[in-house]
């Protein structure tokens, strides 16, 4: 194992972490403001990826594909919020779980019906298809670009929430929804905007991951569960927590898969080290979550 390889894995972890952040930010925002647990967030990720793949196939332009992903996911999010979810804000979590579980069935089966069961492919855009050389390390430019987009989105969200009028309304909505309704803010419209914003972030994540993985039905589900782990670790409702949690989970998962088999190989034979190492690595983030939970039950940045 060389330092170069380790740096490459850390960068991969960062890239995975920024993807998770895009997903977790929307989840935690929707939960913080509306108190809604949205299992169908992964479906919006899938919608973004399919929209991007379709737009890229039609136009050949990656930027247009990204725009299509954002628009499609935001529109799907707004539609779902207006038709179904706004009736559930006052219900208990059990009803929300069932309704959003039903939405997953509708989205997944609807997508399969429209696009078929075969995966679609999205190419890395030409301008980003090369590699960057950092010392002895050559790293795919596209993955680096994802990290940069993730950081930019985190910054943008920070500015949006702390510096704009909409951000004030969102924060006020988290604190006291009756009060801001009494101040003359259309709370229903605010909720739709917040939901569409979270959906757009999920759609962006789906579109960005498209060229790395294949675009297929059900692609959102593993990511959704990882994003839940991120949100629990970071503290529900906290965007800063989502960022910290996402990077932590991304790096832990990636480095665990890389380092555990190597570490175990020094105490046992190679074959069983690979087996046990990969089994342990796939459980690592859940173990991390359990440890953090014992230490701080409300997550790293959660309100006590």
């Amino acid at each position: 194992m060389t330092a170069t390889l380790l740096i490459e894995q850390v960068l991969n972890g960062l890239q995975f972490g920024t993807m998770l952040f895009l997903m977790a930010a929307g989840l935690t925002l929707v939960f913080g403001v509306m108190g809604l647990i949205n299992l169908a967030h992964g479906s919006l990720y899938m919608v973004g990826a399919f929209a991007a793949a379709t737009a890229a196939a039609a136009t050949g332009n990656f930027l247009l594909a990204l725009a299509a992903a954002l628009a499609a996911a935001a529109a799907a999010g707004a539609l779902v919020e207006i038709v179904v979810l706004r009736r559930l804000y006052s219900r208990d979590h059990l009803d929300q779980v069932l309704a959003t579980f039903a939405l997953i069935l509708v989205f997944s089966e609807g997508t399969r019906w429209l696009f078929g069961s075969f995966p679609l492919y999205l190419d890395v855009p030409k301008a980003l298809s090369g590699t960057v050389h950092l010392g002895t390390l050559s790293y795919p430019l596209y993955r680096l670009a994802i990290i940069i987009v993730g950081i930019a989105v985190a910054l943008g969200l920070y500015l949006l929430i702390n510096r704009t009028r909409l951000g004030v309304q969102i924060r006020a909505g988290e604190a006291d929804r009756e009060m801001i309704a009494a101040l003359g803010i259309d709370i229903a419209r605010l909720y739709t905007i917040v939901f569409a914003l979270g959906a757009a972030l999920a759609g962006l994540a789906g579109a960005l991951i498209g060229p790395i993985q294949s675009v297929q039905v059900g692609m959102g589900e593993p990511v959704l569960i990882m994003a839940f782990v991120v949100v629990v670790i970071g503290g529900i409702g906290s965007i800063k927590g989502a960022l910290v949690g996402a990077i932590l989970v991304g790096i832990t998962d990636t480095l665990g898969r890389f380092l555990l088999p190597i570490a175990l190989a020094s105490v046992m034979d190679q074959a069983s080290a690979t087996t046990i190492g990969s089994a342990l690595a796939s459980m690592l983030i859940y173990i991390l979550m359990a440890v953090i939970l014992v230490w701080r039950p409300t997550g790293l940045m959660g309100a006590a």
Partner: peptide, 16 residues
């Protein structure tokens, strides 16, 4: 073949 689509809609109606 796409039976989960109507199933999802039925479940949504039950919750709502």
């Amino acid at each position: 073949e796409y039976w989960q689509l109507p199933l999802g809609i039925i479940l949504l109606l039950v919750v709502l």
